[in-house]
Design a protein around this nucleic acid. Sequence first.
DNA 1: GCATCGGGTTTAATATTGCAACCACACAAG
DNA 2: CTTGTGTGGTTGCAATATTAAACCCGATGC
Lengths: 157, 157
Amino acid sequence: MKRTSLAGDSCPVARALDVFGDWWSLLIIRDASLGRRRFGEFQASLGLAKNILATRLRTLVERGILKTVPASDGSAYQEYVLTPKGHGIFPILVALRQWTEEFDEHPDEIATIMVDRDKGKPVKKLALLSQDGRVLGAADTTLKLRPARKAARRVSA
Amino acid sequence: MKRTSLAGDSCPVARALDVFGDWWSLLIIRDASLGRRRFGEFQASLGLAKNILATRLRTLVERGILKTVPASDGSAYQEYVLTPKGHGIFPILVALRQWTEEFDEHPDEIATIMVDRDKGKPVKKLALLSQDGRVLGAADTTLKLRPARKAARRVSA
DNA sequence: GCATCGGGTTTAATATTGCAACCACACAAG
DNA sequence: CTTGTGTGGTTGCAATATTAAACCCGATGC
């Protein structure tokens, strides 16, 4: 079955999904961005099998999303923290959150809202802006071929 | 294996992933937002097995992301188009795209850039703003419990 | 009416997930 | 120093999902 890899795809969406598009990775990253760092914390929070957590953490480290730091509090164990590349995923988490807030069938089951830490007020919706500041919807955008210096493998959009 | 469902989770990120967080759904949605509508178009573009495409399309329809429209051009076949709920996923696709643009190891393999349809200029990066217009990073936000009218099932973040 | 195409379903092989049991090490107590 | 316990995994096996390939069937096409 071989879980067809998207790594060589030329579509940036596919490339991102290839890195953390599986069932658990984004949840691990979410937890990490909430400050969880220890194997046990992730396991307790997510309720996933330990072997799966172990492999997910390993591949996220390999891919530069997480890094292990040798200690933190006294004990000589290691912890997992986000790299800059991992922190860069934050907008994606926000986008997912906001989609649920807007479209979920049972919004009453959503436990938390994201607020501005200073003021404690809800954040605004992510908006896509053009260079001159207009708000863009999907229909207002197009894809253009990159000036491209090297060939890319697959040519889907 | 049973692919533990996240449907009852109280975290909005998990709830979103429960709907379209599997290996193919987001790519199908991406294709749909690029205007692909026919089974064969998706299959050719994604190169996935037809049975999987069939089940994915079916569940995406069930979940209100896609709907089938009876025709379009002459033939009496059906097509798949995004619902408003499906169009709402667009910012997530943009976020994924921008993450790859910023952090991918081989940016030269990225084929396309997203531009403003009017001016043809690249769009700006998605920004998270506070009510008073400041740009917020992950560290500038917190989660707050919702005023909550009904209980939610699990209490992870 | 015969072939072909689009749009799937069925089948069998293979890979991944999940659970539970097991293991190794660190640290603490006796 | 020997036992005990918690953390952080690894290993095996059964359950399930993915995949490719073969098959199906109603619409077109000719």
